[in-house]
Amino acid sequence: MNDELFSPTIRDQAPPAKRPWRPESIVYPAFFGGPLAAATLGVLNGRRLAVPTQQLLLIAGAGLVGFGARLTVALLVESNSAVRLAGTVCGILVWLVVLAFQRRPFRVAQLRGVDAKSLVVPGLLTAIGLGLFEALILALVR
């Protein structure tokens, strides 16, 4: 009855080439940087965690949709703070997509003894870089 449970299913895996970031930490650059920052870090981290390509594409897609939503808000609404708020909200939503796909693989990696890498510097750079990039595009289309 337990034949299936007691048959081998494990293949040796190479340890990850780069240590992953804690997916929960991406919330900060997502808040400050917006949807593109969240998606970029999500895709980079997904590669470190070796999540399936389909999920990476979904994260990237969520980032583009999030930015599109922000763009729409910018075209429809006058107020600057609404556009800023839309960036934050869309960033957090994209982060939720990242978290949904990466929480489990990250915890499994931890079980394998993989430690998280600090996101402070790459997070800051991505948040500032892509935050400014989004702001620039928004300024151009308005």
């Binding site: 299913t9 494990i10 895996q13 693989p105 079980l111």
Partner: peptide, 12 residues
């Protein structure tokens, strides 16, 4: 079970 979990086979 630990070994399977560490390999992502959480159901098993």
């Amino acid at each position: 079970a630990d070994l399977c979990a560490a390999n992502g086979q959480l159901d098993k």
